[in-house]
Amino acid sequence: MDYLANAREVLQCELKGIEALIEALGSNSSAVVAEAFPRAIKLMQNVEGRIIVSGMGKSGHIGAKIAATLASTGAPASFVHPGEASHGDLGMISQKDVVLALSNSGETKELADMIAYTRRFKIPLIAITSGQNSSLGKAADCLLLLPPATEACGATRAPTTSTTMTLALGDALAVTLLTEKGFGETDFKVYHPGGKLGAAFRRVSDLVKDHDVLPLVESGSVAAKAVPTISEGGFGCVGIVDEAGELIGMITDGDLRRHFGKDFSAHTVDEIMTASPLTITNDMLAARALELLSSNRITALFVVDGTKPVGILHVHDCLSDGVM
């Protein structure tokens, strides 16, 4: 067997399903899903409670992922197993919720009690299914009808293309909701404090606290004063401030090495400093600050409020916190 050819065949089959879904959602499409998608967004956007996602088997696994994606992007959502729902978990669904039910055939018997529950208590029901005339399709207030597509496993018709299409449609719902709500980087960070995603959205203020004592010397001071200040500060640099406390320059240990041999007692810090140094602010993304450190081949940057230094970000602060 040509394993790679078989893999490509599977992916091509699933790709055709996605392409059919894209075509069905076209702006000029008369497909059922194109008409229903905006209504589904409005139902989910205006829900007072939570978006309850449910499905059985493979659809259940896809549903759990959709619920997790919705929740992580600012749309309160939970997954409720339809089998458990019939044994008490229907109580987890309130009249302020909206239910998103997944079933490729639309005839999943385990969903029957949940469907009946939504009809009894007038809870909005959104369905993702290929069965327009199925029990689920007919009961739904909003039918997101999947276009016809061939399962990638033709021999068994195991859920493959259909689950890929369902997952993609769920992502489309989540991202559209995110965009409509104006959910941005700051909001995203609240739901993703850990891992690489959390690190990517950290701000400089998350890594650097205001320092009581910064390595600073006054403009006009003899250069020799910068040496112990750099050593004691531990950041490999010293900031030069004017009478108003505004940062006007910076000296690094590299600057001192480049001026090695000079009589530092005979020169001022102004003569060897880098004037108008590169600075950052507390609200800058830490990843952007790290990029500035890397591209300029420096190890530390002063954090300023206006033009006054309030802290220092060292490259180790970024790396130790997982910012890449």
Rank of each mutant, 00 (worst) to 15 (best):
D2E: 08
Y3P: 07
A5Q: 10
A5H: 12
R8C: 07
E9M: 07
L11S: 00
L11D: 01
E19W: 03
V32D: 08
E35T: 15
P38F: 12
R39Y: 15
A40F: 07
M44W: 04
R50Y: 04
I52H: 02
T69M: 10
A71K: 06
T73A: 12
V80T: 03
V80P: 01
G83A: 03
Q95H: 12
A101H: 01
S103R: 01
S105A: 11
R120L: 11
I126A: 00
T129V: 06
A139C: 05
C142D: 00
L143Y: 10
T163L: 12
G170Y: 03
A174K: 03
T186M: 08
H192W: 11
K196I: 14
A199R: 13
H211N: 12
D212K: 10
V217I: 06
S219I: 02
A223Q: 08
A224S: 13
I230T: 01
I230Y: 02
G236R: 00
G236Q: 04
G239C: 00
L247E: 02
D255A: 12
R257C: 07
K262F: 10
F264D: 10
T274H: 13
L278S: 13
I280E: 01
N282G: 06
A286D: 05
R288F: 11
A289I: 15
L290T: 11
E291V: 15
S295Y: 09
I298M: 11
F302L: 14
V315M: 14
L319W: 11
